[in-house]
Amino acid sequence: MIINHPILGPRDAQEFVYLGDASLMNRPDGMSDGIEAFHDYLYNRDNPAGAHRELWYHEQGDRSWLVVTRNTVTHEILKVELARDVASKAGRGK
């Protein structure tokens, strides 16, 4: 597979490490949210046949974490974003 890195352009997927669903970005707050919230966050996932947002890490590249939107049926990659930008825009903050 080829992932079109937002900074570096097309790069071979062999350079990346796959983590999983991009919802892993939405970590609850440990000081205010409880076990239930963390349990959902860590274990409950959708498993769509089709567009799927997922986290990839460019380990053999620039070490960027990316949010890759990929069609799980065709492997077509629809969108690639820097995870840091996505997280920052989503108000993840500090």
């Binding site: 570096l8 062999q14 350079e15 380990e59 053999q60 590249g61 620039d62």
Partner: peptide, 10 residues
Amino acid sequence: ASRTLIEHIG
């Protein structure tokens, strides 16, 4: 200039 993988060596 780019990082690349050569026989498993970054």
